[in-house]
Design a protein around this nucleic acid. Sequence first.
DNA 1: GGAACTT
DNA 2: AAGTTCCAACGCCTC
DNA 3: GAGGCG
Length: 292
Amino acid sequence: MSPSNSPRSDVSLTHPDRLYWPDEGVTKQGLADYYAAAWRFMAPYVVNRPLALLRLPDGIKGHQRFFQKHAWKGMNPHIEEIADPQDADGEKLLRIGDFDGLVALVQSAVLEIHPWGTTTGNWEQPDMITMDLDPGEDVAWNAVISAALEVKARLETRGLAAFVKTSGGKGLHVVAPLAPKAGWSEVKDFAHSLAESMSADAPDKYLATATKAKRGGHIYIDYLRNGRGNTAVAAYSTRARPGAPVSMPLDWEELSDVSGPAAFTLANVPQRLETRPKDPWGDFFEAAVPLE
DNA sequence: GGAACTT
DNA sequence: AAGTTCCAACGCCTC
DNA sequence: GAGGCG
Ligand SMILES: [Mn+2]
Ligand SMILES: [Mn+2]
């Protein structure tokens, strides 16, 4: 049973049976197969964007785990080296352009993909805002859903569209597509003001600052994903955590039926992608409007 | 995962 | 030949 | 100014 529209790649995987998530039995090949199934939905969120990577060469039970934002020696040629236009002489950044690039990331033991919220063709004008909802200890899942709905309402008041995904970690991401126009500082300032206004209106529920000591019982609205050079985990990216969760785009209508932030995993997402009538984020880029 | 460097 | 090291980093708090 | 945070 070959999934519809699965891309092929000639990028070779050494040790395809290497276990990246040993408890879940997910191998390097299994990860590549997952991305083949997800590619047709995922591509616009990872292609032609600067990328930061979380690499775990020995899998999630191993002892090596490092972020990487710069090009390295011996890098697979399907991973592109690009110059930051604001740091032309600095170290080269990373980008992929196609499915071969994604398989090259798999071979490089990239278990999480964290793109900038912009494309390299329009580098200084972000094309999305990510509001990252991080619940502290003792916050009910329902409260995280309520927070997402509140963020959605406030984005819509501003004339923006809102989409939601699980983070695959502890919370939800509410993402607004932008027609590239406003610059980084305007976008970050807007995200900041949204977080501050929610915190001001419900200080018992929401925080706009990261201080861990205050986090218990509150949801931190992390707006700082929206600064130049900052990143958030990509839609459909796996997470380097137990259970092999993925950051899963959702319909708002199904959010109340989702059991938690890590409900979608390598074990159940391919089935969902095969049987689901439509992409819940199918209109993401069509819904983009400028921030103004 | 893989290059570069040290032993 | 084998072992070790490196692989982000900066704005925003809080104290 | 140092240290936590993501
Ligand atoms: Mn290794
Ligand atoms: Mn988060």
